[in-house]
Amino acid sequence: MKIIRTEKLTFRYDAEDKGEPILKSLDLEIEEGTFVAVLGHNGSGKSTLAKHMNGILLPSGGKVWIDGMDTAEEDRLLDIRRTVGMVFQNPDNQIVANVVEDDVAFGPENMGVPSPEIRIRVDEALKDVGMYEYRTHAPHLLSGGQKQRVAIAGIVAMRPRCIVLDEPTAMLDPSGRRDVLETVHRLNREHGITVLLITHHMDECIGADRLIVMSDGQIIADGTPREVFPRVEMLRGSGLDVPATVGLMFELRKAGFDLPLDALSVEECAEALYRVFA
């Protein structure tokens, strides 16, 4: 089952603009239930791609289908938006209410969910992201990571089948980043929600089922992290980096040692090194 499908997706902000489009004829299919990371430098088009996933932006050329619905059909927009939820970079600018639980209720309220059902959804969503104890707090007194988890709960309460997160950790400190990532992985694992995580942090892609690398509006690599990260030169060439573990293996291979480039985790890397150097 393909929850997201794009065909020759092309986008430019100005229809008159004859310059390079921001997205260049992208073909992409996302399988329902997978955890997909999209990696790219600033200006690679990854955020623009994300905004096509729920009809915030519409293609200049080509098509985007969400669960078979064409995003260009205006009367399907609400159905599309309840299928694909979107979390943005700045947690402050997506929180609407000044009490946590009121904010989480915002999506279901817009969808016309009956009040008793909203209560259930809000409580469950807050428990899913580990923010239930904070339900009566004021959002502006929470930390960045906590705010971002409230924003995620606001999406979860809409019960979407897919969540697109556009650089959700860019403004967070390491512990906030860790909490948000764990939450997203748990939602994928336990609720089967499809996750599209847009990021420029390599480390955040290690746990993904699939890693898509974007550069200049095109997909330049697509595969499991184990398949993609060994392509060190290609990644560095497009303004990205590789996890330090891969970088270390890469340098040692240059010095002539037979080491795998797909030992991504610290433990795997140590194990591989131990085998060669002990």
């Binding site: 996890p243 140590a270 150097f277």
Partner: peptide, 20 residues
Amino acid sequence: IGLTVPSVTKVFSILRSRGL
């Protein structure tokens, strides 16, 4: 303290603990 130690440092502390 809750800080993330560079992964290279972590790899090396594992290697040391295993006798390298």
